[in-house]
Nucleic acid binder design. Sequence first.
RNA 1: GUGAGCGUGGCUCAACGGUCAGAGCACUGGACUGUGGCUCCAGGGGUUGGGGGUUCGAAUCCCCUCGCUCACCCCA
Length: 430
Amino acid sequence: MSQLKVPKGTRDILGREIHLWRRIEETVYSVAQLFGYQEIRTPIFESTELFARGVGEGTDIVQKEMYTFLDKGGRSLTLRPEGTAPVMRAYLEQGFAVHEPRVKWFYLGPMFRYERPQAGRMRQFHQFGFEAIGFESPACDAEIILIAWTIYEELGLKRLSLEINSLGCNHCKPGYIEALKNFFRDRSEELCSNCKDRLERNPLRILDCKVETCQTVLRSTAFPNLQDFLCEDCKKHQAELLQTLTALGIPFVINPHLVRGLDYYTRTAFEVKTGELGAQDAVGGGGRYDNLSQALGGQRVPGVGFAAGMERIVLLLQKEETETSSERSGVYLAPLGKEGERYLLVLSRVLLQHGIPFYTDFADKTLKYHLKRAQKMGIRWVVILGEEEIQKSVFLLKDMISGEQISLSQEGLLKKLQEEISGAENTYLR
RNA sequence: GUGAGCGUGGCUCAACGGUCAGAGCACUGGACUGUGGCUCCAGGGGUUGGGGGUUCGAAUCCCCUCGCUCACCCCA
């Protein structure tokens, strides 16, 4: 009988690490609130068709990375591999297009992709994302980037770089793809096998191929540059976005080879990268998706958004994190014997009413055990209650730092604890 | 899906093919019968990932399998 283990590419998150997750989540919530974005929670699984149509049939995600299954009713369902398509689905399904066409939403939660796990890449991973739907203005693209930037900054992440590009729109994208195909008409032999395939299925993706032979082709002077094919509107959109970013003081580099893996992107595409995570260097990315709603069968609705990978941020925080104190606030209740347990449980109700955090250990062990345990947990104040105290109707309060201890009545104990422990203070991590 | 490296107590790691597979940390108990940290002593905990093979003898060598890690691919 072999030990049961978590499925490949998944893991338990607990212990010290959980504080990091909480910190990220709290930052996301507070920045969202400051920018006026509302939370949306969509299902963990959706109909397979949503992703096939929304993310794109030709993408790697749809072709090989989805957790797809049939339910007992024979419906094809898929664990969500990303968050934007479901959000747009909800927007259309709930009729926002007609009754409230402009919304600003954010989400937070697990995503699933069937891939070989490696550093910073899991089969179940977590993203938070922000979506602004119904806005055409490049200023909105800039706001999305500003939100991302604010969150990274708020978390204290350094040395991140922002890469940005424009993928064109329905007017100019086809022209560029045509030019690409023309260019390769007699040079396709120079491409790697993967890219030969892409030439038909997803030609833009050739741009970010890392194979050396493809790179050589990409660097040739005759190679069509995406930026040269942008129509006037797209050029203007990009120029305004870049101008705004400059005004905001957000540094960026234009990467004409940045194309994102999902079909729905138009115009703005961007990626936030770090140099500290090995091969999986993108900590967030996003862009404009003016074609998505129509791909899902809705009317044309513009949108722009981004998503960030939480485990990658956790990895970065762990690298930067210096020693953190694990001191807990509150009081350790140390009962000696059954009677002590009962009395302390009653006391805990009183503490509750005063907002004093407590931890009661029901191990039914010696005082030595309790003191060791409180020590290990980093709790300063210990209330000891055994036969002696019960007889005298007192509580023995011990200060683990000074070693001093005093007998107190319940009122005296409460007074002292309230002085020493400011209830609201949460010292679990700074 | 492809390639490489690695699987030994809860954790980190020892053990030239040769007695009962060890140590540190952690845990439990004692020295200290109701007083923590430091120290000392003792104890529990392993089918050496699983299966097969070679051998008088396998944690060690070979094959298969599973898992982990890293990279490719792709992305967050």
